[in-house]
Design a protein around this nucleic acid. Structure first.
Lengths: 357, 357
DNA sequence: GTTGGCACTCACTACACTTGAGTGCCAAGT
DNA sequence: ACTTGGCACTCAAGTGTAGTGAGTGCCAAC
C-alpha cells in the first residue's frame, strides 16, 4: 500500500521516488507505446532499454509498476499500457526540460521573424504552425482587451439610417458595431457626434466606465445615445477572448473509436469550453494535463498541453495542444512553450504586428 | 442497353422517364436506406411502399433498377443500396420542391428576425443555424467586397512608430492593416495624412484603381506612402471571401470509416478548397452534388447541397451543407435554400445588420 | 403481367481448435 | 537478497466447419 519512496532504499536513484530501474522500464514502456499504440511486453522492454537484465526481472518490476498504478494490462496475456499516472511520471521526471536551443525553438523563431500582419493573422497562423509542427489540434486563446486604451473612436454614416461605431485600441485591434440611427439623422449630425465621441473617448480604457458626451442639438444627441449603448456593448464584448482552433482533423486519426472522435471534436467546437479548459489547467499550475487530470470527461482519452502567453508578468492568453494521451510529449511541450513565449514577446513588445506589404 | 424511356410504354407514368412503379420502388429504397444505413430488401420495399404488389415483382423491378445503375448490391444475398445516380433521381424527381411554407422556412425566418449584429456575426450564426437544423456540416461563404464603396478611410496612430490603416465599406465591414511609419512620424503628420486619405478615398470603390494623394510635407508624404501600399494590399485582400464552417463534428458520426472522416475533415479545413467546391457546383447549375458528381475524390462519399446568396441578380456568396450521400435531402435542401434566400435579403437590403443593443 | 414457390448464394454467427505472445510463480544460481 | 531460466497458465487472435437466415433469380402457374 505504500506508494511513494519505499522498496528501493539501496538503489542508486536519480529518477526521483521510483528507483532508477523502474523509471527506465516505465520510460521504455511509455515511449514504445507512444510509438506503436500496442501493449508493450517484458521482452520488448528488455531488448530496448539500456538495462542488461532478463525479461523475468523486468516482468517483476512491471508487475510492481502495475500495482503502483503506473501501468495496466488490457488483458491477462497482453503487454502493458501506461496509465494517466504513468504518463504523468514520464513527463515530470523522464523528460529533460527542453535543453537550450531545441529544434522547435529554432523553427518557431524563424516563423515569427517572417510573419507580418495584424494581430488576428498572427494568432491564426500561430495556431496553424502548432498543428503543423506537432500534428495535433491546436488552440490559441488571444488576450481580451480589458486593459487596452482607446486610440480613436468614430461613428461612420453607412446611409439608409444606419451607422457604424468603431473603436481602435492601442493593440491595433478594431471593435465595431453597427447601429440604427433612423432616417432623420443627417450625415452632418453623425459627423458631429463622431467628433464628440472621439474627443471624449480617446485615451479612455475599455474596462473603465465610459462617459459618452451629450449635445444640445437633439439630432446629434440621438446619435450619441445610440452610440453610447453600442460602445457599452463593445466594451463587454471586447473583454472576451478570441479563440483560434487549428487542425481538428488531426484528431480523427488519433483515436480509433469514432465516438471518441465525435465527442472530442464537438468539445473543440465549443469555444467557451476550450477556453475554460485551458484556463483551468493553467490555474492548476500545470502545463500538461493528462486524461482525467483535467475534469473534462469527454476528453478523458486526451492530453492537453498548455503554455501561457505572458505580458508584463500577467498571463493574458494561452496556446494549447490537444492530442491523445499517447502523444509525443517532449516535442509537443517544446513547441507549445516556444510559440507561447514568442507570442508573448510579440504581443508584449508592441501593438501586435510587423508592417504591411 | 436502353437506359431512358423504354420498357414501360403502357404504364400511366408521371414520375418522369422511369415509370411510376420503378420510381416508387426507388424512392422506398432510398428513403429506407437513408434512415437505416442498411441494404434494403425486396420485402421491406413491398411492406413499405404504397404499391400492392408482391415482393417477387419488386425483385424483378429492383433487378432492372440495378441493371440501369440506380441501385447496387453490396453482395449477392443482400438488399440494395442506392448509387449516386439513384440519389440523383431521388432528388430530381421524387422530392417535391419545397411546397410553400415549409417548417424550415418558418424557423429560418424567425431566426433572422431575431438576429442582430454585424455582418460577420450574422454569417457565423447562419452557419450555426444550418448545422443545428440539419446536423450536417455547414459552410457559409460571404461575398467579397469587390463592388463595395468606401465610406471612410483613416490612419490612426498607435504609437511606437506604428499606425493602423482602416477602411470602412458601405456594407458595414471594416478592413484594416497596421503599418510601420517610423518613429519620426509625428501624430500631427499622421492625422494630416489621415485627413488626406479620407478625402481622397471616400466614395471610391475597392475594385477600381485607387489614387493615394501626396503631400508637400515630407513627413506626411512618408506616411501616405506606407498607407498607399497598405490600402492596395487591403483591396486585394478584401476581394477574397470569408468562409464560415460550422459543425464539422457532425460528420464524425456520419461515416464509420475513420479514414473517411479524417479526409473529409481535412478538406473542410482548407477554406480555399471549400470555396471552389461550392463555386464549382453552383457554376455547374446544380444545387445538389452527390458523390462523384463534384470532382473531389476525398468527398466521394459525401453529398453537397448549395444555395446561392444573391444580391441584385448576382450570386455573391453561397451557403452549403456537407453530409454523407445518404442524407436527408428534402430537409437539408429546404434549409439551405431558406437560409440562402434570407441571407440574400438581409445582405441586399442594406449594409448588413440590424441595430445594436 | 403478376405471383407463389423453390433452389441458391453468401454474410454472419457460433463453436471448437490451435497458436503464440505474454504473464506469474518458483526453485536454483550468484 | 536479487536475478534468472524454466514452466504452467491465460487469453486474444486466427482458422476451419456448420448452421442460419436474409435476400436473390428463375420458373411454372395463374
Amino acid at each position: 500500500m505504500s506508494l511513494q519512496k519505499s522498496r528501493t532504499p539501496a538503489q542508486p536513484e536519480h529518477g526521483a521516488d521510483l528507483g532508477a530501474r523502474k523509471a527506465a522500464i516505465l520510460e521504455a514502456v511509455v515511449s514504445q507505446y507512444i510509438g506503436s499504440a500496442q501493449p508493450v511486453g517484458s521482452s520488448a522492454v528488455a531488448d530496448a532499454a539500456g538495462l542488461s537484465v532478463s525479461s523475468a526481472t523486468i516482468r517483476a518490476e512491471m508487475a510492481a509498476l502495475e500495482h503502483d498504478g503506473f501501468l495496466v494490462q488490457p488483458h491477462t496475456s497482453a503487454g502493458r499500457i501506461p496509465t494517466d499516472k504513468g504518463y504523468r511520471y514520464f513527463v515530470d521526471h523522464l523528460t529533460q526540460p527542453t535543453s537550450g536551443k531545441s529544434p522547435e525553438m529554432v523553427r518557431v523563431k524563424r516563423f515569427f521573424d517572417d510573419v507580418h500582419g495584424g494581430l488576428e493573422e498572427v494568432l491564426e497562423r500561430s495556431s496553424r504552425l502548432l498543428t503543423e509542427m506537432t500534428s495535433y489540434a491546436s488552440v490559441v486563446v488571444a488576450p481580451g482587451h480589458t486593459s487596452s486604451e482607446i486610440r480613436s473612436a468614430q461613428v461612420v454614416d453607412l446611409g439608409g439610417g444606419h451607422a457604424l461605431v468603431l473603436v481602435v485600441l492601442t493593440d491595433g485591434t478594431v471593435e465595431k458595431t453597427s447601429i440604427a440611427v433612423g432616417d432623420d439623422a443627417t450625415s452632418d449630425a453623425i459627423a458631429h457626434a463622431s467628433q464628440l465621441v472621439n474627443d471624449a473617448l480617446t485615451g479612455a480604457r475599455l474596462n473603465a466606465p465610459i462617459a459618452v458626451p451629450t449635445s444640445a442639438d437633439p439630432a446629434v444627441a440621438a446619435v450619441l445615445n445610440h452610440a453610447g449603448e453600442a460602445i457599452g456593448a463593445l466594451a463587454t464584448g471586447a473583454a472576451s477572448e478570441q479563440v483560434f482552433v487549428g487542425g481538428p482533423s488531426r484528431l480523427a486519426g488519433a483515436f480509433d473509436a469514432v465516438e471518441t472522435v465525435r465527442s472530442v471534436l464537438s468539445i473543440l467546437e465549443q469555444q467557451l469550453v476550450v477556453v475554460s479548459l485551458l484556463r483551468d489547467v493553467l490555474d492548476a499550475g500545470l502545463s500538461v494535463a493528462i486524461g482525467h487530470e483535467h475534469g473534462y470527461e469527454p476528453l478523458a482519452s486526451c492530453a492537453v498541453i498548455v503554455a501561457p502567453v505572458v505580458i508584463d508578468d500577467e498571463a493574458v492568453g494561452a496556446v494549447g495542444l490537444l492530442g491523445p494521451t499517447r502523444m509525443q510529449y517532449p516535442a509537443a511541450i517544446a513547441a507549445a512553450r516556444a510559440v507561447g513565449s514568442e507570442l508573448s514577446g510579440r504581443l508584449g513588445g508592441r501593438g501586435g504586428e510587423g508592417g504591411a506589404a
